[in-house]
Design a protein around this nucleic acid. Sequence first.
RNA 1: GCGCCCAUAGCUCAGAUGGAUAGAGCAGCAGCCUUCUAAGCUGCGGGCCGCAGGUUCGAAUCCUGCUGGGCGCGCCA
Length: 557
Amino acid sequence: MTLQEILAAPLRSVLDGMGVSPETQAPFEIPRQQGFGHLSTTVAMGLARELRKPPKAIAEEIIERLGSLPMVEKLEVAGAGFINVTFKPEAFHTVLRSLDGMGDDIGRSSIGGGQSVNVEYVSANPTGPLHAGHGRNCALGDTIANTLAWAGYDVTREYYFNNAGNQMNKLGESIAARVCEALGKSDVLPFPEDGYHGEYIVDVANELVGQHGDQLTQLVDSDAIDDLKAQCRKAGETWCFEQIKKTLHVLNIHHDVFFNEDSLYGSGRVEKTIANLRERGLVYEKDGALWFALSKMPNATNVDRQDKVIVKSTGEPTYRLPDIAYHVEKLERGYGMLVDIFGADHIATIPDVLSGVEALGHDASKVRVVIHQMVTFIEDGAVVKFSKRSGKSFTLDDLIDEVGADVVRFFFVMRTPGTHLDFDLNLAKEEGDKNPVFYLQYAHARICSILRKATAGVPDTASVDLSVLTHERELELIAIISRFRSTVERAAETLEPHIIAEYLRDLAGAYHQFYHDCRILGSEPVLEQARLVLANITRRALHNGLMILGVKAPESM
RNA sequence: GCGCCCAUAGCUCAGAUGGAUAGAGCAGCAGCCUUCUAAGCUGCGGGCCGCAGGUUCGAAUCCUGCUGGGCGCGCCA
């Protein structure tokens, strides 16, 4: 039960009585300004045209027809035709009691209806440790997955990787070159021009030499360089993946499925994709390569409609082909929705994949792509430069070491995905009042402290008289808690988790204000009981909100 | 040149799908701890919502055209 729900039914029947089309929405808004009541609606203004009457007159008629409602203090017309609603305190008590009924599930919703969703994120190839910029994809993807789960979807978290391609060969070659260096035979295999220059390559090489020095020496001496490269590649992959998983673990990220691109070849899906496209006349050969005829697709999502190569003249497929096969595979696994989390630098691949999916007779609208813009790290007012290949890389581990996992997760999701993100390292490192993460965690810890100190524990709500909660801060706090579920729903629908981060700031703020103005322990026994209940429900909401963001909710700080 | 994204306070950003006088945090200034965690609360200053048109009762929000920035536009992924 929310404040909106108290009014929804009566208003609906009034509108019906006025002969208004049943589709007419009666949205309630929370007035931005003080003094406009607890809720307001613009229905009257929306109906002005249909009813050919001035909005104010319609508003007055609606109010008259609504009559007096049990939990409503007053209804008034304001401005151009707003209907402002002020509730009696008992409305808030009703709402609070129903929120308490949710128990630890406060904020949970069932709008997802159990529909299965696959969220694919991170998906970095095992060619090196995750760099700091990857953090946004990681945090965003996992938070979106959490949000969908809380909204009642059945979520699978998936990581797509390729351990077969050209990049992996370069990794193997780079490590092999470092191995040769370590063995004092750098002339055998010079470091490749476009190899991976990172420190970790040297680490892996040294580790290998330490463990299998003799065997590697033998490979080098017998000129079995290909074998050396292959062994190095395998070792590099294992090392990188371990590293990546360790980093994700620290960030509280755990995938259900690690999908290897290579398996698409083994299962024949890539071949099948070509065959299916060919069957539909969407494939042709030119210059020794195989082309996907996007220009022939009538309703292609693709905007530029340029034909694209799917198999190079060397016989190797381009990334496009397995990507299409992969998305088809996921859809055939039966998911009702696929969510892809991509950085803006991969934006160009999306229309091709969607067109491919569509061409093969699947519903491309099931695929929702979240594109996040790039991240800039700012320190002391200046942009921090880093590059994966330069050797002076700034890894996600480095970032976590500097600012902590909670801050990393929060900072990466606190902005809307579509905008460029400035990650302020100074602010992030601040372990105090300036840091927005601590603001939320502090509110949670503060509540826990009080609950610990309450000698009789948290009272059973059923036996508590909530009607003593009449302070403005108390009612405001209740109103904000009651928005939690719809906030989760909105974040799930839009796939924009920053909505939850914003909400939690409001929630924590309302609690801090309540805490400041309303003494809990030691006030009148009845009031103390009621306030303990309110504090405890706030705690649950904060806790769950932080869980969705993957941020810890400490019981003391 | 073409496509996608962005432009709101000194800085970093919200803005509930078109509503009322534009909202936070940080930075600046001024207050509040003999009582539940001051990692908190309260107040003040700060705006041509990039520019110009259009749509309508009403636009930061929708449409068009500019300007300025980011990311792409490969038989790389």
